[in-house]
Write a protein that binds this DNA or RNA. Structure first.
Lengths: 128, 128
DNA sequence: CCTTGAACCTCTAGTGGCTAGAGGTTCTAT
DNA sequence: ATAGAACCTCTAGCCACTAGAGGTTCAAGG
């Protein structure tokens, strides 16, 4: 049984974030000591790692909640989880292509020669 | 002189967003009719378009405020504006490369064969 | 000139995903 | 026994909007 501080260290998560996840139902409510402090077991570390990894991959808390629910039901469709992951992949790809066009435009604007005569910044005039 | 609704239409911006920008100092406070309704001129359309375009490019409201200030000062360094744009470009590139690695991982996980025997979803087990 | 109803006004509160701080309690090591 | 590190709850703040309540004003048609 470890404290919240230790759990935070092991999962590279800030303490308030852990409490927030508990309150949001992404992590089960921890056992408590007599003095009301949280104590965590092995499973808690795994679950939190799962949540963190999903977050890194860009899943929303809602997505993660849904995956946990689906996973908890052993009879239930892996295909549903697949679906979530697939739509996440699509979203990631969409974001990439959007960012790439931003990159192109910013690069173009920054490459423009500085027009000292007009006194106007090329970056500004090209952004309007 | 056009109404806020017309301005919203012309710039593809929601009305509350325009009021929010005004309150946030990104757009000058509009003239008012006797009945206290906002009326906008030609410049307002341009300014709002500039703000919207910057937002599309991912600049923060703070960045935009700063660019507007810098632009308003004619003696002042275009180089400062350049700097903002450059750091924005760097941020965009960082986001792209992060998203690409997410894309790779999601693709990998989704390509895994479905293990019907274990009853466990490959997506879940690979996310832990 | 009067009425209708679309468009406007302000103000408050909610979104997501945390993060920070105040003010107080408990644990642990000496 | 005591110091101080770590914990507790609760509230409020961050960004960039968005939604809704409840009330006012505008513009067009009769």
């Amino acid at each position: 049984m470890i404290s919240i501080g230790e759990l935070a260290r092991r999962t590279a998560t800030k303490i308030p974030t852990i409490r927030y996840y508990e309150q949001a139902g992404l992590v089960p409510a921890a056992d408590r000591t007599e003095g009301n402090q949280r104590r965590y077991g092995r499973e808690a570390v795994q679950r939190l790692q799962f949540v963190r990894h999903c977050r890194e991959l860009g899943f929303s808390l809602d997505d993660i909640r849904e995956m946990i629910l689906l996973d908890a039901d052993p009879d239930l469709p892996c295909s549903a989880i697949h679906g979530i992951a697939e739509s996440q992949l699509a979203a990631v790809r969409a974001r990439i292509s959007r960012l790439k066009s931003l990159e192109r435009e910013l690069t173009r604007i920054l490459a423009l020669p500085h027009d000292a005569s007009s006194g106007q910044c090329a970056v500004i005039t090209n952004l309007v």
